[in-house]
Design a protein around this nucleic acid. Structure first.
Lengths: 187, 187
DNA sequence: TCGCTATTTAGATAGATATCTATTTAGACT
DNA sequence: AGTCTAAATAGATATCTATCTAAATAGCGA
């Protein structure tokens, strides 16, 4: 299991733990002091086994701790875990990285849908799909080299007859630049 | 609906929205840029209707926004909402206030279980319950007055014959203080 | 206007889970 | 040992929901 997968399932169990009204109230109540199971049950107007079930769920995620006092079990909030969660939320972005989802699935799909025998069947109407095609075309150019318009047309022409439109789109999408009749790849 | 109830159900819907693996991934993916429904579907290996369902749930809680581009719908993350949530988590304590739970239910229950005809049946063994009883007894004393031990015994004696134990417990629990044979109520 | 594309809605199904009652476990007091 | 008390576990049930397929909607281009 990668670090990211751990982060995801860790965060997920936090959210699952807090995505229930009774448990959210329990956390709120415990924030103002330790409580026994029976105490929570009467505050929440629930049966003790129900509360016990919720507490064991909260305990499993580390949101609460338990201590023993005779045969009563005293639960207390783990404030630190809330702080950790609060921070984690601000770094949700990191969850999208490559090993959580197949980040090339979209490109592969679009390429597969629009190419046949190494030729572009049609230029996609939607921007999102056109972008995939344009990125592919841009990759056919060497970053270190400059190309004349004729050369650009020729390379794009391998994939589609309307090289002029595609050439303009490449420039429009800032994947290529043009100056004084010369083209070069950007990024 | 009170402010607290609104806060609770608001927070709850946030947590519910994020307590699903697919939705958490969607949020993660959107953090790195806008995406169409189809794009998300292929990244997550889910059907478009499923993704659409998740997005509408996220949209309802304000976690994402939608814009239209031809007939493709582009979704983007509302980063501000994550920041808000992150802050709210640190103030969960406020959820325990009086109008969310009946904060006296516990005291009432204990008093009811242990009193009969205005007399304490037995001294509860568990600390949590004894505390309720002791708080009640402390309330029988006037904060502005000092009492001799005899007077203290007499007042406690109205409720239970073992006034000596209860008197000592009151001092031990810091609900009363004693000095030079005089007692007074604290807090 | 017709057909194509992207999304949403409707409806069905399988799996998860919050709650309850009844039972079991375990500690404390006599 | 036996009784009482507090909590946990087991098992049942009813509700919720993530996912799918099929159908409906809506924009766009020919």
């Amino acid at each position: 299991m990668t670090r990211l997968e751990r982060d995801l399932s860790n965060m997920l169990s936090f959210f699952k733990a807090l995505s229930d009204e009774s448990r959210l109230k329990i956390v709120g109540i415990l924030a103002s002091g330790d409580r026994s199971v029976e105490e929570l049950a009467s505050l929440l107007e629930l049966r003790a086994p129900t509360v016990s079930h919720h507490l064991s769920r909260l305990k499993k995620t580390g949101l609460v701790h338990m201590s023993t006092e005779g045969n009563t079990h005293i639960y207390r909030l783990n404030v630190e875990s809330l702080r950790t969660l609060s921070k984690q939320i601000l770094s949700v972005e990191k969850l999208s990285a490559d090993d959580l989802v197949d980040s090339e699935a979209w490109e592969k799909k679009v390429m597969n849908d629009f190419f046949e025998d190494s030729r572009l069947k049609v230029i996609p109407a939607s921007r999102k799909k056109r972008e995939v095609i344009l990125r592919f075309l841009a990759e056919q150019f060497d970053r270190k080299q400059k190309y004349s318009e004729k050369e650009v047309n020729q390379i794009i022409g391998r994939y589609h007859e309307d090289f002029a439109t595609l050439r303009r789109e490449l420039v429009g999408a800032s994947l290529m630049k043009r100056k004084a009749g010369e083209y070069w790849r950007v990024k």
